[in-house]
């Protein structure tokens, strides 16, 4: 049997799941809150570790949606969900009503607001930016200038901003920032070969395929320096450079160094949309505030609420590869569920 599925969230996970569900013969409606598809990935210029343009991946996913004739509803925000038997009645904030046999939550993550880590100076010091701000600079294709308007000669990347930090309430690892820092550091060195680039880290979590090679390339080809030590505080110098204070934990000595630009690798947090929807549907949230699936090994896309499925970063930080796999795995779970009905 086939059924009607509403996929909520038009990021990479929602797009892939919607195409796959449609290919499996189900009637699919993809809801996206914004006016465009792509979610967080649409802010990105190039992807690790191949430096493939993010737009190229999104174009593929969009083409698949078109080819599968998936209906996409833009500007759609879920206001209420009513259940009658095995059917869902979904009402949007604009008054639109629709029904479905299954729901897939793909409302993902949002980036940690780096202003909350006040001692790092984001939003206070001119030349402290986030990884997303740097992607925007890359996307402009106008070369690299710091917010003061100078071509930076000394650039620092700060790992684990808003991750592994009980003071932010986020004790988990965001899993993509280490490799993103390496990617961005390499991109900066490619554009500014004379620049001095330092990464300040607690651990380097290069777990994915090619990640370690990318890290090695950063050291070997680009001479990027890695200092093991978490940034304690940043201070703005009178010339708008930023002085960082860390402990070089391998040298067992405190260290300070000034930079023309400091890039904070902001982590992932559960998105407001995920929280709102999870509450509407009475789903279980884990301590890290992401949605808890029914079984962490075997039912990764199934929630405690019958007919409600979840995929992508709504269940915790993931790479794009993992989001795509998770979207496909959710498709199978939903397909199985609808066939049993």
């Amino acid at each position: 049997m086939t059924g009607k599925v509403i996929v909520i969230g038009g990021g990479v996970t929602g797009m892939e799941a919607a195409s796959q569900l449609s290919a499996a013969g189900h009637e699919v409606l993809l809801l996206e809150q914004k006016k465009t598809l792509g979610g967080n990935v649409s802010q990105w210029d190039r992807l690790f570790p191949s430096l493939r343009p993010a737009g190229e991946l999104l174009d593929h996913l969009k083409e698949n949606l078109l080819a599968r004739k998936v209906k996409v509803y833009f500007g759609a925000e879920v206001l209420a969900v009513a259940r009658s038997g095995n059917q869902f009645g979904v009402t949007l904030t604009d008054g639109e009503k629709m029904t479905a046999d299954a729901l897939l939550i793909a409302t993902g993550f949002q980036m940690f607001d780096a202003r909350r880590k006040e001692e790092y100076g984001y939003g206070i010091y001119t030349n402290v930016i986030t990884s997303a701000d740097l992607e925007e600079i890359f996307r402009q294709k106008k070369g690299i200038k710091n917010p003061s308007g100078k071509v930076p000669q000394k650039i620092a990347f700060i790992h684990c901003v808003g991750s592994r930090d009980v003071k932010c309430g986020n004790t988990y690892c965001s899993s993509v920032c280490c490799i993103t820092a390496v990617k961005q550091a390499i991109e900066v060195k490619e554009m500014l070969p004379e620049a001095t680039v330092y990464c300040f880290y607690m651990d380097l979590r290069m777990y994915g395929r090619y990640f370690e090679d990318f890290y090695k390339k950063a050291q070997e080809k680009h001479g990027i320096q890695f200092v093991r030590g978490r940034l304690s505080e940043a201070v703005e110098n009178p010339d708008e450079t930023v002085m960082l204070k860390v402990e070089d934990t391998l040298a067992l000595r405190p260290l300070r160094m000034s930079f023309d630009m400091v890039v904070l690798m902001a982590g992932m947090e559960v998105s407001q949309g995920t929280v709102r929807l999870g509450k509407l549907l009475d789903l279980h949230f884990a301590d890290d505030r992401f949605i808890q699936p029914s079984n962490e090994h075997l039912l990764r896309n199934v929630t405690g609420s019958k007919g409600v499925f979840v995929a992508g970063t709504a269940t915790g930080p993931k790479t794009i590869y993992d989001c795509i796999s998770d979207a496909r795995s959710a498709t199978l779970a939903i397909d199985e569920y609808l066939k049993q009905k």
Partner: peptide, 23 residues
């Protein structure tokens, strides 16, 4: 404290030229 603003990287640069794998 190691003050990286006050140190010279000359030795590293020279060693790097002779043996790049130091990085």
């Amino acid at each position: 404290q190691i003050n990286m603003d006050a140190v010279s990287m000359e030795l590293l640069e020279k060693v790097k030229k002779r043996e790049p794998s130091v990085m």
